[in-house]
Structure formats: structure tokens, C-alpha cells
Amino acid sequence: MTAVHLLSNWLLPCFLVGTALWAAVRRVPVYEAFIDGAKDGFGTAVNIIPHLVGMMVAVRVFRDSGALEGLVGWASPWISRWVPADVLPMMLLRPISGTGSLSFMIDLFRTHGPDSWTGRVASVVQGSTDTTLYVLTVYFGSVGIRRIRYALKVGLLSDLISALASVAAVWWFFGPPGEPEP
């Protein structure tokens, strides 16, 4: 797995330096462009505050009260060999609400740590797909399409497959669940 570690360490720095150098060669005023784009960052972060506060509160109440455990506890004995049961609500919420599943991911980071098996599955599930229902609503809504044919089926089925693939990929790269982290 050393090659994989090497790749994931080098990817971001190489992308950054490569982009900046290439832009400079193409005579783009690099720093001015950076500042121009960076201006939008603050507003974007502030705009998600209401969504994040709403969802974090709900997720936190849901977990701390014991309702989450009650919901997934019965499934745990059967599936915990393959995947920790408390990732399930996050997977179910992923196609419906992006901030909702993000809040679950944060909750899992807080309770298990981002480098735990659970934290890694949560990261991959969150990062590998988009919010199907939101995308369908916005895209079809914008041009007034009423009959969306099989689009919902395709979106939800591919979410299911990518959730399974997320679990399989974490198995592949990090071994089975429950292994203590170094």
C-alpha cells in the first residue's frame, strides 16, 4: 500500500503547484486570479451556517438521546462484520440531503475519529457521490420537465452501488472493520 500512500500524499501538492505553474506559463496573473476566486470562499462558508446548524442539532439530538442506537442496534449483530451499523443512517440520508449526511459524517468523526474505519467509510460515502434528489429537482425543475422517466431509479440505484463500493474500497485499502488503528 506504500504506492497508494505516496500517491495520496503527492496528489494535492502536485495539483496545486502544477496548476499555478501552468497558469503562469499561460500568462495568467496567478496571484490576482487567486484573490479573485478566494473572495467567494467566505460567503460560501457563511451561507452554509443555517443548514449546518439545523442538521447538526437534529443529528446530535438523534444520537445523544439513544434513538440512533435503537434504530440500528437490531441490525448490528448481522452487519457489523461487514460495516459498522451507525454508518447506515448516513448512507440512507446521502441521496436526500447533502448537509444531513455531512452532519452525520461529522458526528461519526466526533464519536469514532476520522481515521477510524467508520470515519473512513463515512468520508468515502460523503465524497464519492452527489445528492441525487437535490440534483434531480434543480436540473429538471429549471427547464420544466415533468416526466423524468427512469432518472430517479438510475440515481438511487447508483447511490446504492456506490455506497457498497465505498465499503468495499475501504476494505480493500484499509483491511476489515474493527482493526485497531496505528
Binding site: I106, F109, G119, S128, S162, A165, S166, A169, F173
Partner: peptide, 26 residues
């Protein structure tokens, strides 16, 4: 990646290969 870092991950980017596989399969 940013949130992993914020919650104290030692290797915030080590999920990238797994995420790449999952997103490609999806």
C-alpha cells in the same frame, strides 16, 4: 478532506484512492 483535518486526522488525504474507486464504480 478539510473536515477530516479539522477533526484531527493524521492522514486527511489517505481516503482519496478509496474515494476514487467508489466514485468511478458509482
Amino acid at each position: 478532506i478539510a473536515l477530516r483535518l479539522q477533526y484531527g486526522s493524521a492522514q486527511p488525504t489517505d481516503i482519496l484512492p478509496a474515494a476514487a474507486v467508489a466514485t468511478a464504480v458509482g
